[in-house]
Design a protein around this nucleic acid. Structure first.
Lengths: 138, 138
DNA sequence: GGTTAAGTTTTCGTTTACGTAAACGTAACA
DNA sequence: TGTTACGTTTACGTAAACGAAAACTTAACC
């Protein structure tokens, strides 16, 4: 009976499992908790992570890939949790969402531009190589 | 005759001009030079930036928006400059380009996902607001 | 000729996001 | 019974990307 972890029906992960799954260190995961990004429950001393935590970890890593800081990521969590507030909060939240959207769109443009340039480099590079190969072997 | 700066036909910028144009500090610009990302010429003590430097500054800022570190950005510059090398270099460069492309595509997926989620939040948020407004005023 | 405005170098401080090591608990396994 | 694997806390270290301040030069203006 080692499956205490799934007894209450909800799947639960250890810190090591998450670390392996997402290829990060346990240190990092604990740090995210320190910064208020994760809230695992405890089994004695040990941290146990539920689906919600795992989902958040995914969001954290995605945020990081997009260059967000941990506190920016935390803010999005906080905002999302507060989204069940009242009019003022909702209006404020709407504003933040619009800002975020503009920023994401800017990033998307940046990426499209970068990909275009990269593609050009790629083609030019291939051309040079083809030339050299024909010159050397043909 | 203060236009010594454009006499040799190529436009040239001072550090302050660039700082204002891109809304960054002069400190940052000097720092980028320190890290080998910019190579302004000198007019006595003063730095003068040419089109190439300005273009690079744009690339630096775009890279930063995408979460790249300065040394990653510098590497892309170095690679680009080396692209006029020989076969080995070109093959290596091709590999790097492919890696970069995959990473950019991952970022693009991340952004699309984030935008989708954001859009959903936005809609739900509007719905809540509409409900409340009808409840309050209607 | 005194004062702004913009530039320079040098140095020290700060924040972020962990890495690394110490020193320890616990459970499984030979 | 010892060692291996995995977990814990605490504390110090570090790289990156500047900010801030000091102490100076140079050019422009009134």
């Amino acid at each position: 009976m080692e499956a205490v972890r799934t007894v209450s029906s909800a799947p639960v992960y250890t810190i090591g499992e998450l670390a392996r799954e997402f290829d990060i260190t346990t240190r990092a995961i604990r740090y995210y908790e320190d910064q208020g990004l994760l809230e695992p429950i405890r089994d004695g001393q040990k941290r146990m992570y539920r689906r919600r935590d795992r989902a958040r970890l995914k969001l954290i890593l995605r945020g990081k890939r997009l260059g967000m800081t941990l506190s920016e990521i935390r803010e999005t969590f906080v905002l999302y949790d507060q989204a069940h507030g009242h009019q003022r909060q909702l209006r404020y939240y709407l504003g933040v969402l619009e800002e975020k959207r503009e920023q994401l769109k800017q990033q998307r443009r940046d990426i499209e531009d970068a990909l275009t340039e990269l593609e050009q480099s790629y083609v030019r590079c291939r051309e040079l190589l083809d030339e050299q190969e024909r010159g050397d072997t043909g």
